[in-house]
């Protein structure tokens, strides 16, 4: 793709984000967008957010479950950027009109205590570099009409990230079996979804290893203090104004969020 076209699509996605509008799938409009092109569009969209005053505070990993990989016809995850404009703390309410077509996912967030750079990073390195893990909600949202996404559409659209909510406990990853920890997502008091750590590439640590090595191959490292959302532990749940959600992760803690 030509740089002008990449810039144009990145700008359109940014405008859609700001105006809460949807675009037709990019893959319907432009032939043969590669995943590399899509990451360049993502970069353009991000640069517009940074120009507008947002700061990068972490990364999210997406497409980590077998089911979603099969749906999108890919065999690897993707990633997007977290900014200070996207974070909510436990107990804060999210105005639903700041989002377009939101869905909630229960995840484990990693908070880094050291800088870490791939390639060649192992699970042991990730655990050593992790200050703690937290229960969190990722509120995914798509700037593409009706979530009609192919992998290129979601990558370009910042991996369909909307906002995220961090719980209030930080747990040493040495104290938890992150593969078997269970995830219970309740919506308005009813169990909506359950899952377990193994949903993300067999272990949330594997997802973080993938991210660091993938970014490392592009010369990008992660910094101490960055937050990494490691991928959904169960299916997405649609949300609307008035909904109250809680996620609890065995041994890790919980996180609540309300939509108003």
């Amino acid at each position: 793709m030509k740089q002008t076209q990449i810039d144009q699509l990145g700008d359109e996605l940014y405008q859609a984000l700001v105006k809460r509008e949807v675009l037709e799938p990019l893959t319907n409009r432009v032939d043969d967008i590669t995943i590399e092109d899509a990451y360049q569009i993502q970069q353009r969209m991000l640069s517009r957010r940074i120009e507008a005053g947002e700061t990068v505070i972490g990364k999210k990993i997406g497409v980590t479950s077998k089911a979603v990989q099969n749906m999108l016809g890919v065999h690897q995850p993707d990633f997007g950027w977290l900014t200070d404009g996207m974070v909510y703390n436990e107990g804060e309410s999210i105005p639903i009109d700041t989002l377009i077509q939101p869905k909630a996912e229960g995840e484990i967030a990693f908070v880094l205590k050291h800088d870490i750079q791939g390639p060649g990073v192992t699970a042991a390195d990730v655990l050593r570099a992790t200050e703690g893990v937290m229960a969190c909600f990722e509120i995914v949202d798509s700037r593409i009409r009706d979530w009609k996404i192919k992998i290129q559409d979601t990558v370009a659209d910042n991996a369909s990230c909307g906002v995220f909510v961090l719980g209030s406990a930080l747990v040493d990853p040495r104290e938890v079996d992150l593969v078997t920890c269970g995830m219970v997502l309740e919506k308005n008091g009813e169990v909506a979804v359950t899952g377990a750590g193994a949903a993300t590439l067999s272990s949330p640590v594997n997802a973080v290893v993938w991210l660091i090595n993938m970014l490392g191959s592009l010369g990008i490292g992660l910094k101490a203090g960055e937050v990494v959302l490691s991928g959904a532990l169960g299916a997405m749940v649609p949300v609307a104004a008035g909904d109250s959600l809680r996620v609890t992760i065995g041994g890790v803690g919980g996180c609540s969020v309300r939509f108003v």
Partner: peptide
Amino acid sequence: VDLRTVGVVLEKNGEPVALGAGAAVLG
């Protein structure tokens, strides 16, 4: 044990094929 949040991972031939948490059973 917190039986609500206890996670289960069922693997077939080494691959996770079904997973969930205790709350899936009647809460």
